[in-house]
């Protein structure tokens, strides 16, 4: 059992995937699963609840960053010691959570970030180009050079979760988190993870990446 660990999933129109994702987490003995339905009116909440997750409902869509922070706040109030950000679309593997959480539980770091290039084979070339661009952009904005960007798989201790006051409601939160790591001098480590790609779960396309960059730039200079 992993009673002290809470898995947080932001879900938006994920009725096809969310049930399988929650079941795979339960199979790996993660019982504290919080799914935040970010305003989707399909069967996302039903599927997540039936599969065994606690479901929180955003009355209207506020974005992935906002949904993750809602899940984190709830988990902290429930007393979670370790928190994991996990994707709703099946891109992440439940069996790899252990690798992500272990350095945090051992007290070596405050937060771990998934990196995909070592374990994930066959990343589409277009995706790779966008990713390298995102890594460079992330470095220019935050001053932190990472080997990956925005895959959404993170594990952290309670202290780090309390520090990450995500203000960017939409996808820009991923870069914002790296900014917090730098600002508050959080200890971090990148852990190799496997990201599953297929046409249905292709999360962030080029247009999406441009939007993230735009939001981050605006946030940096005007907020």
């Amino acid at each position: 059992m992993n009673d002290d660990t809470c898995i947080i999933i932001a879900a938006y129109y994920e009725s096809d995937n969310i049930g399988d994702v929650v079941r795979s987490l339960l199979e790996h003995n993660y019982e504290n699963i919080v799914v935040v339905n970010d305003g989707s009116d399909d069967a996302t909440s039903d599927q997540a609840q039936k599969a065994g997750a606690t479901v929180l409902e955003h009355a209207i869509n506020r974005g992935q960053g906002a949904a993750l922070r809602t899940g984190v706040e709830y988990a902290l109030r429930q007393g979670a010691e370790y928190l994991v950000h996990f994707d709703a679309d099946g891109q992440h593997q439940a069996e790899e959570i252990q690798d992500m959480v272990e350095p945090v539980k051992a007290g070596r770091v405050d937060i771990t970030l998934g990196k995909r290039f070592e374990k994930t084979g066959d990343i589409p070339a277009s995706k790779k180009t966008v990713l390298y661009g995102a890594i460079l952009f992330q470095f220019l904005i935050t001053g932190v050079w990472l080997s990956d960007a925005h895959n959404g798989f993170r594990a952290m201790n309670r202290g780090a979760a309390e520090t990450l006051e995500i203000k960017q409601d939409r996808m820009g939160h991923a870069t914002e988190i790296i900014e917090y790591i730098k600002r508050y001098d959080l200890r971090y480590e990148e852990i190799p993870v496997t990201i599953t790609y297929d046409e249905d779960t292709e999360g962030q396309r080029l247009w999406n990446a441009i939007n993230i960059a735009k939001k981050n730039l605006f946030h940096k200079f005007f907020r």
Binding site: L56, A59, I60, E73, R77
Partner: peptide
């Protein structure tokens, strides 16, 4: 106006968040 819209957006998110947590 930009500043005000951002502020309203933050307040709206906080409200939606608190409601979601209360309901749960």
């Amino acid at each position: 106006l930009f500043d005000r819209v951002e502020q309203l957006s933050e307040e709206l998110t906080s409200f939606v968040r608190e409601k979601a947590i209360e309901d749960a």
